[in-house]
Design a protein around this nucleic acid. Sequence first.
DNA 1: CGGCATTTATTTTTT
DNA 2: ATAAATGCCG
Length: 781
Amino acid sequence: MSSWEESDAFKEAAVPLSQQAMGAPRGGSPYMDGLNPAQREAVETLQGPVLMLAGAGTGKTRALTARIVHLLRTGTARPNEILAVTFTNKAAREMKMRVGGMLGEMVEGMPWLGTFHSLCVKILRRHAELVGLKSNFTILDTDDQIRLLKQLIAAEGIDDKRWPARMLAGLIDAWKNRAWTPERVPAGDDAFNGKGQILYAAYQARLKTLNAADFGDLLLHVVTIFQEHPDVLDQYRRWFKYILVDEYQDTNVAQYLWLRLLAAEHKNICCVGDDDQSIYGWRGAEVGNILRFEKDFEGATVIKLEQNYRSTPHILGAASGVIAGNKTRLGKTLWTDRTDGDKVRLIGHWDGEEEARWIGEEIENYQHGTRGLDPISADSMAILVRASHQMRSFEDRFLTIGLPYRVIGGPRFYERLEIRDAMAYFRVAVSNDDGLAFERIVNTPKRGIGDKAQQTINTVARENGISLLEASRHLVEQGGLSAKARKELGILIDGFDRWSAAIRAGVDSHIEIAEVILEESGYVEYWQNDKTPEAPGRLENLKELVKALEQFENLQGFLEHVSLIMENETEDATEKVSIMTLHGAKGLEFPVVFLPGWEDGLFPSQRSMDESGQAGVEEERRLAYVGITRAEEQCTISFAANRRVYGSWQSSMPSRFIDELPPEHVEVLTPPGLYGGGSGYGASDMEEKVVNADAYNSPGWRRMAARTSARGLSQPSEAKGIVIDAQAVSTFTLGDRVHHKALGFGAVVGIEGDKLSIVFENGGAKKVVASFVTPADDVPF
DNA sequence: CGGCATTTATTTTTT
DNA sequence: ATAAATGCCG
């Protein structure tokens, strides 16, 4: 596992081996050792609703796992009576591992520890018939969903240019997040050209006939079942004596309802979260859920975890200062008993490339040991950006300087084109009537079965109420397609017949069968013949896919799990700097963190502000808080005055969040580029001057930004340099006699922003930053 | 039906 | 700038 994950909590949980070996220690509970009073209370308050408000780095996962162990060790609950919900598989896995570790070797499985979705699948498979599905329903991925919606939009006669399927998918998703079935969508909701509701209903009907559910359905169906079948709900209510929820601030309405329904009997629900880290409002998360907890669950105990074990006081102070700007929050005050540590560093750059260059150098400095720090591994460093397109400049730069990096949160393995194609083959081979999968691969690789042929197949299938594969078989036997299509389709059908037979026969291993399918279908060959640069990688991924099969009993089992699991872990040994989005960084921590791109419009994102106004700014601010609190030792915030955006140059003002950083926790740096290529003399003077002038807080930057944008910055290379002290510019005019500490007297022959071209009396000519020279008259002799 | 040209969008992302 | 996604023509 990666070294950066909550390593402190592990350290603290360390229990002497002797005690571990003794199993349950007399009088003691090792899982309680080292817990602070608040954590202890959170672990021991087992009865009734509990809200654990856990700030960043306060050891919440530790408290949560200790709570589970406490429930088990005290005999309060058996493992299968505990419902523990997380958002990601990763979090679920980690919790399972930790509970197992704390319990010692008797790792009794926790059958109901998982993500909302995986738990819902489990429940839904048992009661599928109550919502018109069979228990072997398939789970659609986004691609399937879009393809289906496209058909429905076309059937409805809507122009899919103006009303794209993606948009409808988003809309339906949002409705499902709110637990709205088609009937519950408010009448008069004229979304999607007024057809939203109709299309939603049609989509749901179609899913039913396909015996399929999308991700939103998993929750929605279970909530529906709970609401309409009290007997079923009752069964689960009684079953789950204790409920635990992680990241409660990220729950949406459907998840909230699901929890409320289940918790109503025993009322032993413990929700853990941090309202200040709610950053998923845009995909349906309701901060309101956590803000309302005490009202929703009467008699709730609220426990605040405020002691931070992760970051230095300065980092904590900076984060607290920023988040204090939010109005809608429950309010926590993080503190630490640490006293050491550097201030958060702030630096402005001319443009995005310079920012990347500077950060690259800083990373190398850290690696070699700088400013009295020990050398730091690249693994311990991360660059957290607001939007993924910001990653590019860093990748470019790191490639040229040969700095190893890893990008976290790219396209996930199982979402890749070739993997989905391959899995579609497996799906059809496993169940011949999987129409969506068949559609996906019927002409991949190209078989000359185009739109027209596919339409014919569809029609025949629908008219006769048979699967697409059967319809194809029919067409091949009876004719009705072009000769070429018939021939190719026939080959494909023969293939599926063989593969399906092989699966049923159970003689060959599923791995062999998978290889045969990929080979005989021509899919491997298809990529071998492809000469795009991605092709080799795709073949590599296919090999990896086959390898992943080893962990499963059979193809069915594999397909079953894969739709819910999005693995991404291909760790290799090289030490690498991590580049990821702020969203992707939630829950992680790094000794050294860089936060680039703090410019208004980029961060906070213009779009967020336009769409959600003040609430949008607040969510962005929480994002800033999440970013800063990822840092353990070193945190560097930066911004660029100019940035390439969609091809053209754009200048921007420093982020409003920068002005919200408490100055006492910040050290303002001056980029080396400022010295105009001249000598390093005076650098420290300069720095001091800037710090004292509180430059980032002064209007200097604003003026600079205003001036440069007024001038229309189209050729930034023309005048590289940054105005820190705007006063300096107006001080000089052409011809002025000036004095420079190191270079002596000279005359100003040119002015470019804050940089002066000076011909010195000692013969040299140089460009110098204005603040390095003084008017000659002022020089005392 | 497939390949090349033109068009268009472009925050954040899990399940 | 750039990539992905359509549209048109052979």
